[in-house]
Design a protein around this nucleic acid. Structure first.
Lengths: 116, 116
DNA sequence: CGATTATATTGACAATTTTCTATATATGTG
DNA sequence: CACATATATAGAAAATTGTCAATATAATCG
């Protein structure tokens, strides 16, 4: 068997056919990763579930009251959720109210559509 | 104004009405957090998008070929995705094929339903 | 069996994340 | 203005994560 045939055989033995098609853009990959990173923490999932269950906006102190964590720690988690677009914040006098930003589930739906 | 009235006023000035209803269970919070943590990395999002776009299973070497990362690093990411139930793996001879585990989007749908 | 190839695991290091204490900022009250 | 309260920020320590080089394991081939 010639060397050429060996090379051909090796190519046929490839594990996968070559791929075409495009991957998600780097920009979208970053966007999705940021959203999921924000949700990838047990405390933050519970904050989100608290807001979802309340069905209304809650001030930071109410949220804090449900956790065994310091005020700055909860403030930090709220900031991460806010920056990822999962929640929004609005000051009313002395309090700052947080609520779910429902459009964010649009991003998640986009991602699920990607999965087909 | 008596001290009692002051205390009452303070209670009326509460930022939020007390909450009833139940939060997500701790078990579910962990489950969601693990899923989202797995997806909260740009490389892993791109692996998932690669598999989604290919529309078929891919062996590890094919996946590796799309990244500028070492083989052990990709292997590590594949393991995390596998353990979170995002992908499944099946050995066929020398190669191990990875494919999307579509039921995982059921978990995500559950979470989105939580958000209402 | 020995050699080769594909993938996984180990162990180390660097980067990032979570958490805290201490302090700052913003708003409201007397 | 001084004081109280709600939230944010800074800075540091501890835990977790992403990465790599080296090595191990598993399957195949001769």
């Amino acid at each position: 068997m010639t060397r050429m045939l060996n090379a051909l055989k090796k190519r046929l033995a490839r594990c996968c056919a070559p791929l075409q098609g495009t991957r998600v853009s780097e920009k979208d990959a970053l966007r999705y990763a940021r959203l999921f990173k924000a949700l990838g923490d047990e405390t933050r999932i519970e904050i989100v579930s608290l807001l979802a269950n309340a069905g209304k906006e809650l001030c930071a102190c109410e949220i804090e009251a449900h956790f065994d964590l310091s005020q700055p720690t909860i403030s930090h988690h709220l900031k991460i959720l806010r920056e990822a677009g999962v929640i929004t914040a609005e000051r009313q006098g002395l309090w700052i109210y947080f609520k779910l930003n429902r459009p964010c589930s649009g991003d998640m739906a986009d991602f699920m559509r990607l999965l087909k």
